[in-house]
């Protein structure tokens, strides 16, 4: 098959991911964009590895697959830390809006004892 197809898909995913990161003001949704970009990176690596592009005699170090596995692992680490940051941000600010003024002083603490279900379910 032609390597252009997966490479194009990777380009699309990267573009969509970039849009997601830039256009969302919700921190968690922004992370979704990041995940898409990482997926695009993985796809490029796998494609290059599966098609012997750019080198003769295949991929003796299996670098395409191995590096993709590494990317997946790093992504897992990244998302965990990022979500922890988001949770901390939510705790201190009460929202996860990224367009607002960055605050160094803690804003009001949300009242966690009575969750408003209407708000929760939106």
């Amino acid at each position: 098959m032609s390597p252009a197809l997966p490479l194009l898909l990777a380009a699309i995913l990267a573009g969509v991911g970039t849009y997601g990161v830039l256009a969302r003001r919700h921190a968690v949704l922004m992370l979704i964009g990041v995940e898409l970009m990482l997926g695009a990176a993985g796809l490029i690596l796998v494609t290059v590895g599966q098609f012997d592009i750019g080198q003769v005699g295949g991929d003796p170090l299996a670098s395409g697959a191995v590096l993709t596995l590494f990317v997946i692992t790093i992504a897992a680490a990244e998302i965990v830390v990022a979500l922890a940051v988001v949770m901390a941000m939510f705790r201190t600010r009460g929202d996860v809006d990224l367009t607002g003024e960055a605050q160094t002083v803690e804003a009001e603490v949300p009242d966690e004892t009575s969750p408003k279900m209407g708000e929760v379910l939106g």
Binding site: L22, A23, R24, R25, H26, V28, L29, L31, I32, E35, I79, L83, V86, M87, F90, D95, V96, D97, T99, P115, E119, V120, L121, G122
Partner: peptide
Amino acid sequence: VLFALMLTRSGAGEVDT
């Protein structure tokens, strides 16, 4: 990610810029 979405109870409000 879904978990974080649920925990931040962020159904309401703008999600896009």
